[in-house]
């Protein structure tokens, strides 16, 4: 996994994204901190010293979402894009074990994210620490402000890499990463809506659902959670995705490169899954058009939406599962 050639290759095919990720982190942490301090000074009454201000500065806001998009694309550039082009042929013809190739990609990505996050975080921390608002840092521990989002980003990257070992190309890798990263929560919402409409049974999402969704992890405010320490969930999650990805990458069938899925055994499962989820979503969207309170009509609209979306998603996903997106220029 520490073969120099693999590092040269990984850097070469992803360096632009590493720079983009660095810029996002610089804006997210040091730059935002400077702006926030200026705002606090300028409008001391408007920004009353709440813990939420600090949370939003280091964890929340929209920029971490851009970090996650960049992270998914980074994983796509390390695995998925190789499958769209002839690069996978080159990589697999090299005299290295496939397991080593996967670990080299994983370590390269996880290390890059960690280094960029650490450097930009402590720059921001130092800026705040040397200001008159240093006392606000005491409201949170370093584990909460620094370690939880960091492990969240690494978990998301590891998850995106694992999805790369079952997806046949880059676009499906990135799309599936986001779908599955919110899947437990999303499915709960879809099912919950159906239950609520039909049986007036309001189902609150349990807290563990948040922990099971890698997309939500970097946004967790640890002080709001009561179940367990998020780190105790994120670490086994990260190790599990790394281990399964490592196992599957060695069994990847390159002949299916460019197709939606690499493992044909998964095709029926995906077909059923896509159709059911889209049908539930269709039911939810169409029934929402009916004015609130007209329950019977809402139920009818729900089933019309359910069936229409099921039909079209079935037709579309059959095409999707048999597509091939490979660049074959000379």
């Amino acid at each position: 996994m520490f073969h120099k050639a693999l590092w040269i290759q990984n850097y070469k095919q992803s360096k632009m994204l590493i720079w983009i990720l660095t810029i996002i982190f610089v804006i997210h942490l040091p730059f935002q901190t400077m702006i926030a301090i200026e705002n606090w000074r300028e409008y001391p009454h408007f920004y009353s010293a709440t813990e939420y201000d600090i949370y939003r500065l280091f964890i929340g806001g929209s920029l971490p979402f851009f970090v996650l998009i960049a992270t998914a694309i980074l994983a796509g550039l390390l695995i998925g894009i190789e499958r769209n082009t002839r690069r996978n042929d080159f990589t697999f013809s090299l005299p290295f074990k496939r397991g080593d190739m996967y670990l080299a990609k994983w370590i390269y990505g996880a290390l890059s994210i960690s280094v960029i996050h650490t450097v930009t975080f402590f720059t921001a921390y130092l800026i705040l620490f040397t200001s008159e608002y240093a006392y606000r840092l005491q409201w949170f521990s370093l584990t909460e402000l620094f370690l939880t989002p960091l492990i969240g980003y690494v978990l998301f990257f590891s998850f995106a890499m694992f999805i790369g070992t079952i997806a046949g190309e880059m676009i499906s890798q990135v799309v599936l990463t986001f779908i599955f990263a919110i899947f437990p929560f999303g499915l709960f919402v879809l099912l919950g809506y159906g239950f609520d409409l039909h049986f007036r049974f309001n189902w609150e999402p349990p807290e563990w659902i948040l922990y099971a969704a890698p997309l939500l992890f970097p946004f967790l405010n640890q002080q709001d959670q009561s179940l367990v320490n998020p780190l105790l969930v994120a670490l086994p999650w990260t190790i599990a995705t790394l281990a399964i990805g490592y196992f599957l990458y060695q069994r990847n069938k390159v002949e299916h490169n460019g197709e939606f899925l690499l493992f044909k055994q998964l095709q029926p499962v995906f077909l059923v899954g896509i159709v059911v989820c889209f049908a539930l979503l269709g039911g939810m969207l169409i029934s929402a058009i009916v004015p609130w309170g007209m329950t019977d009509l809402q139920v009818i609209a729900y089933w019309i939406g359910f069936l229409v979306f099921a039909l079209f998603s079935y037709l579309l996903s059959r095409r999707l599962l048999s597509m091939n997106v490979t660049v074959k220029n000379k």
Binding site: R87, F90, S93, L94, F96, K97, R98, V327, N329, K330
Partner: peptide, 16 residues
């Protein structure tokens, strides 16, 4: 796979 240090594949395209 280390034995592949003795083999080099030249595909019909240098796309990679």
């Amino acid at each position: 796979p280390e034995t592949k240090q003795d083999v080099i594949f030249v595909p019909d395209s240098s796309e990679a």
